[in-house]
Design a protein around this nucleic acid. Sequence first.
DNA 1: ATCTAAACGAGACGGTACGTCAGGTCTTGGT
DNA 2: ACCAAGACCTGACGTACCGTCTCGTTTAGAT
Lengths: 205, 205, 205, 205
Amino acid sequence: MPQRPVLRCADRPHTGRVRNERTRRAILTAALSLALDNLSDMTVDSIARSAGVGKQTIYRWWSSKWEVVLDALLEYADQEVVILTDGPLLERVVGFLSSTFALITGPGGVGPLLGALMAQAQVDPGFAVSWREKFVMPRRRALMQLLDGTVEQTADNDAAVDLLFGGMWYRLLVSHGPLDEPYARRLAMAALSLTCRRAEAPPTE
Amino acid sequence: MPQRPVLRCADRPHTGRVRNERTRRAILTAALSLALDNLSDMTVDSIARSAGVGKQTIYRWWSSKWEVVLDALLEYADQEVVILTDGPLLERVVGFLSSTFALITGPGGVGPLLGALMAQAQVDPGFAVSWREKFVMPRRRALMQLLDGTVEQTADNDAAVDLLFGGMWYRLLVSHGPLDEPYARRLAMAALSLTCRRAEAPPTE
Amino acid sequence: MPQRPVLRCADRPHTGRVRNERTRRAILTAALSLALDNLSDMTVDSIARSAGVGKQTIYRWWSSKWEVVLDALLEYADQEVVILTDGPLLERVVGFLSSTFALITGPGGVGPLLGALMAQAQVDPGFAVSWREKFVMPRRRALMQLLDGTVEQTADNDAAVDLLFGGMWYRLLVSHGPLDEPYARRLAMAALSLTCRRAEAPPTE
Amino acid sequence: MPQRPVLRCADRPHTGRVRNERTRRAILTAALSLALDNLSDMTVDSIARSAGVGKQTIYRWWSSKWEVVLDALLEYADQEVVILTDGPLLERVVGFLSSTFALITGPGGVGPLLGALMAQAQVDPGFAVSWREKFVMPRRRALMQLLDGTVEQTADNDAAVDLLFGGMWYRLLVSHGPLDEPYARRLAMAALSLTCRRAEAPPTE
DNA sequence: ATCTAAACGAGACGGTACGTCAGGTCTTGGT
DNA sequence: ACCAAGACCTGACGTACCGTCTCGTTTAGAT
């Protein structure tokens, strides 16, 4: 939820017209719809036009169209990933990955948009921090918690998470192989070979 | 090495001025230097200016500045990755990853440029194929060969390669953790747990 | 003195808060001060801000910032022009012109503002009528009365007045020559050569 | 004739594509036509669009749309003013004024455009100098030469010219009286009463 | 030695999107 | 009902970069 023009003294309560929630939703909806339809049609002008909104209203609350569409994506997709709470760890991880894959692939999938956002983050340092804080890190925390029931950060856990998300992002960005359940299972097994070496079944000694 | 304007009748041998090799090098050098210095300064005009070259000369041989800088990168970095031929497999993989990491990180590192190229590939389908064919796939083949001494494509091998490169790219693009030797070792171990389950040492038996 | 929102039934005496005279003065003062300081800083927002007033309060009483600054100018300058009542006609005209010139020229002079108002009248038909009725025509009537002691409109009188004001405005707008007393005297003589041909002293025979 | 990007060393002859004269004419024509049709429709975008030209091409050669339309006006109207060379001085001046009036008034007249240009000059110092040097001063010189057969600058001559142009501009800008031949004659007589006091018929002593 | 096709530096050009600015309207809550 | 604050729509602005298109010049091989 963007909240830039709020550099307001804490003691002064609030004056002036209040922000229009319907406008905000219209912008997010328009942005997401344009983005999912055809990324290169998503210009600031087209968002404004199709939301029935002035460009300035967009720039008042977001610093670029990418921030807009990121917020839109968060509201759209935040609740879609299922997190199983029982069953063997491997299955829970596979479930997490598979449900994420499902969001990405297929028609109407969010894959190209994710690619574009990751792309933008490479090129726009300002957006990179939003991207990290709003999208990447929350996902990491969720997966991390799944892995060991806590958010404890060890190098092994970090590597396992990187490996899982890395495997996913790599296929998404390079798009040479399918994001399907067998792949999810392989990633999960490899990752668990890192975190569970001692816990579950020590390989040799 | 770009070679577009050659749609010449086979019987007519060649006429006209021949391509200037020094010009080609000047363009590649200028592009790479601008890209490594500050990516957003690398415009077609700035490349042309700093190479002392007309824009048309660039577009005659490349279809966009990204193709230019990709070629520049290939010439610059192609020979830098060492491929050990003896020692245990794990060490050979770790060596491959580490020498790749070294290219990326550090001052003057190629990391941001790689990020930008991957970004561009998300957004420009034309460039995406160059990117895949010239950069991504050759690396995959090299690593694949290292893994099992052949280029045989099995789902396990594919997943192992994706996992290794995925782990690398993820940290590169999201830049939250270091690309160092311990990380390389973890990735390698996880990957080998996929490919070597039967061959080397089945985890449980 | 603007008075738009008063379409009130005669029998209903008055309801609600009464117009705040101090607010009105603050707006006029702020507008004039900004206008004399730097014309392009005089935006509606800046007037509102520096008067401590909401924009709507401005638009409630005036239809544009130009109407505001015109009113401000009228209150500021209306009493500054002296109208001599005795002495020879020529001297009375010269006196009128000179005192007008004095308002315009010099530091803190009203010249640029007058120029801007005349400019706005060229481009905004709505403002043009205010400009004519509140500023241009009263001045014309004053000068006309000075010329022949009446407001009788003959073509000769009209031309004389146009000539006097024209000479003034031309130098003001084109700013190539000084608005000084010798110039005032020349204009006056030329103008009187039109109106007084028969009355005072026929040039030749 | 705009010529901004010419900061070229005198010794280096010229390289690169040469300026397209047809483009230049298209821009001027489009600008003038839009300006005469409806001044407020003359935006930079509309000029560009209706000339089939990129905006940048306009900004490459002119610093604002007003410079464009001024140049357009100069080419359109420069030859329209007749300068009689024989007959009595009074008639020659009346002729000059009348032919100028004719350009201004009537349908398709240039009056509103002239007003807008004069207006812009009040508000944009950069344009003011172009306006003075390209339009105002040349006209002054032409009239001055007509008055005494030379360009000698005396205060009387200056005042006479100011008076003539002033009378014209005043009626144009304030638009309360007709720009017709009787008015031209009155202005001419008044002006000549200044310049010809000694030469033709000294009033009294 | 000439001819000819192509490479080349330079830079004008059409186009698309950007981010900003100001004007004028509308909507809060407070007085 | 008035008002300060400020969100909102609108429309134009000037800029940046892209990729294409001429210019005139240079350079090689073919004749």
